[in-house]
Design a protein around this nucleic acid. Structure first.
Length: 211
DNA sequence: CTCTAGATCCTCT
DNA sequence: GAGGATCTAGAGA
């Protein structure tokens, strides 16, 4: 049924199956400023302790705590000193799988999203994981929210499903471990899918050889 | 479109 | 201390 919330069972499975199944569905977040909703067009799967690219690879820490809990909750993390990214926790309680939400199309609350990202074109409002969080108003305070609560501030509802023939997969963006694992999923031809960028280690300062 | 570089601070080793 | 599941501006094609 279109518009119904995705049940918790939806998230309680292998990430590499849940991730592509999320494409086309709609995440929405309500704040005092208003409600913003995005149709998901790009996601990535992270498999927990066996996955070198996962934040859970080295076990449980204060930061990744939520990933080890029950499915259907949001794992938000802070990165690069200024950005937030959001995941949906998958798999049974006690495991640490998650799907990174990488991009979407704003289908509701565009005015609110534009106010949050005034320099962005409409196409770029949620084109990238940190942009998506900014457009939805997601930050540290949203870490741990349950998206399976009807009437709650953050929900995932059934949208117009992505055409299975248009779903593509390939290597994950910007990760340093397990580069070959093709667990990035997107809707081919959708203009809101982010451009692929390989991982580039950044150097802190200019290396001065002599003075 | 491509490429380059800077911003900025939290987290884990 | 090192580096990161990124974004933006600016320059050039």
């Amino acid at each position: 049924m279109d518009g119904a919330l995705l049940p918790r069972d939806f998230f309680d499975g292998p990430v590499e199956e849940v991730a592509p199944a999320l494409l086309g569905h709609v995440i929405s977040h309500r704040t005092p400023e208003g409600e913003v909703a995005a149709r998901l067009t790009e996601v990535e799967a992270y498999a927990g302790p066996l996955d070198p690219a996962s934040h859970a690879y080295r076990g449980r820490t204060p930061r990744n705590e939520v990933m080890f809990g029950p499915p259907g909750h949001v794992y938000v993390y802070f990165t690069y000193g200024m950005h937030f990214c959001m995941n949906l926790v998958c798999g049974p309680d006690g495991t640490s799988m998650a799907v990174l939400l990488r991009a979407g199309e704003i289908i509701e609350g565009e005015d609110v999203a534009r106010a949050r990202r005034p320099r962005s074109t409409v196409r770029d409002l949620a084109r990238g994981p940190a942009r998506l969080c900014q457009a939805l108003g997601v930050a540290r305070e949203q870490n741990g929210l349950d998206v399976c609560v009807p009437g709650g501030p953050m929900t995932v509802r059934r949208g117009e499903p992505a055409d299975p023939a248009l779903i593509r997969n390939g290597p994950r963006t910007g990760v340093n471990g397990a580069k070959e694992v093709p667990w990035r999923f997107w809707i081919e031809g959708d203009r809101t899918v982010s451009p692929y960028r390989p991982h580039v280690p950044r150097q802190r300062k200019k290396i001065t050889a002599e003075g």
